[in-house]
């Protein structure tokens, strides 16, 4: 498992993907931070910045998950890892962790950098800031697991990327439909599914345990499904 994890991390940086991801993520998040925090005039308010970061995921998460498994299939290297003494779960978790490390690492570093001016020129609520970072990371983990899962369904990276983009948009924005729906019942369900609705608690400064459970179980679910995809193909 560590071997696959290491190879995966290396492959991010022997191809442009890793660099592009880090560059785009940092540039866009820095811009958003500037726009919604520094230039907004209230230097210690950052809720809006974190809410917008979620939308950046639509573009950047597929970048790091699209080739995760689809490329192994296309290049037939999956025959190597599937005939090696590694469990299916080990393979899937290693793939997930590599993408998650890249994403989480970049985001944590960015968050630390952005905190410095906040603390210097204002009085940010540190606990709130840390909780927001944690929530974003967990939401990102769920999206990455989903991306890895979608990548396992196809040999085509492009299809995997498009599928992941569509799925992330759906999960983020599904609560927007609530404005047009009369049924209270359906509205409740859509809000429960929607990442942005789930995140609203954190934006308000509440550490929402149910959201944490939701993001984590979604991560686990998609990783489990990915293992099942491998198993199903083996038995097909």
């Amino acid at each position: 498992m560590t071997a696959i994890y290491k190879r995966e991390m290396r492959s991010y940086f022997t191809s442009p993907v890793g660099y592009i991801f880090v560059a785009v993520f940092l540039a866009v998040s820095a811009f958003l931070f500037m726009q919604f925090t520094v230039q907004a005039g209230e230097s210690s308010s950052f809720s809006e910045y974190f809410s917008y970061i979620l939308y950046v995921f639509i573009v950047i998460i597929p970048l790091i998950t699209m080739k995760s498994i689809s490329e192994e299939r296309k290049m037939r290297t999956e025959q190597l890892i599937l005939t090696s003494p590694v469990s299916l779960a080990g393979i899937v978790v290693a793939k997930f962790l590599a993408a998650f490390t890249l994403f989480g690492g970049t985001f944590v570093v960015a968050s630390i950098i952005y905190y410095i001016p906040l603390a210097k020129y204002g009085t940010p609520n540190t606990a709130h800031y840390i909780c927001s970072v944690i929530a974003i990371i967990l939401a990102g983990a769920a999206f990455i697991a989903m991306g890895v899962f979608i990548s396992s369904l196809t040999e085509n990276q492009f299809v995997a990327a498009l599928g992941t983009i569509a799925a992330i948009i759906l999960l983020l924005l599904i609560s927007v439909l609530n404005n047009y729906i009369n049924s209270e019942f359906i509205r409740t369900i859509l809000s429960a599914i929607s990442f942005s609705a789930r995140y609203s608690g954190f934006a308000a400064g509440v550490f929402d345990y149910s959201a944490v459970v939701y993001f984590s179980s979604l991560t686990a679910l998609f990783l489990f499904l990915t293992v099942r995809v491998f198993e199903k193909r083996r038995w097909a």
Binding site: S11, M75, R76, V86
Partner: peptide, 24 residues
């Protein structure tokens, strides 16, 4: 196992590839 199409990572050197399998 050597499958019909060798499962090679084209972006790796021979050394990296073999030591990856060694770890795997």
């Amino acid at each position: 196992y050597l499958p019909e199409f060798p499962p090679l990572y084209l972006e790796m050197t021979v050394k990296e590839y073999l030591s990856f399998i060694y770890d795997l």
